[in-house]
């Protein structure tokens, strides 16, 4: 279950939008223009089950998300969904991994405090005994050139 974001958690001036998320969730998100830079040398790693529920998150995931580990574990991965991300990107992600293939793309993620961070994400299906049992997502530091390209492109995809 995803709760609406709360104004008392937000740092800085914010805007509000209601998102329709994967799995039939609706969520009111509050977001600011404050970017948290991706930490050098780190990977953000998480695993979700087939329904997109987070079953594992590494320390960098927790730190960058702004949530506690308890808040993150067993939450829908769409807890990080930023309103600037076009739904088409996530549809492409799910279509690709459901075919058993790797998906790679640049993603703007939403923090608990309303801020954001950009990542280069790779999502792969975890195949055990020839069946997809879960998905692992690994994010690394994106180049600013790619981020700037996506900043221009994504608003055109709504």
């Amino acid at each position: 279950m995803l709760h609406d974001m709360r104004p008392e958690d937000i740092v800085g001036e914010f805007r509000e939008k209601t998102l329709d998320l994967y799995g039939g969730y609706r969520r009111a998100v509050l977001y600011t223009e404050i970017e948290t830079p991706y930490p050098d040398g780190k990977l953000i790693v998480s695993t979700t089950n087939k329904d997109g529920i987070i079953t594992h998150a590494n320390k960098s995931f927790v730190e960058m998300s702004g949530y506690t580990e308890d808040e993150i574990l067993y939450a829908p991965h769409s807890i990080l969904r930023h309103p600037d991300m076009p739904p088409a990107a996530f549809k492409d992600l799910w279509d690709t991994v459901n075919r058993g293939e790797h998906w790679q793309g640049y993603v703007k993620n939403l923090r608990k405090d309303g801020g954001y961070y950009w990542v280069k994400a790779t999502v792969i299906p975890n195949i055990r005994q020839a069946k997809v049992v879960s998905y692992t997502s690994v994010r690394r530091k994106p180049s600013r050139t790619k981020v700037e390209e996506c900043t221009q492109l994504y608003p055109t995809l709504f």
Binding site: L43, V45, T47, H102, Q104, T122, V123, I124, N126, R128, T136, S137, V138, R140
Partner: peptide, 13 residues
């Protein structure tokens, strides 16, 4: 081990 292999797979893409 499977998790590490999956992780290496994501990095090799």
């Amino acid at each position: 081990m499977e998790f590490m292999i999956d992780l290496m797979d994501t990095l090799a893409v």
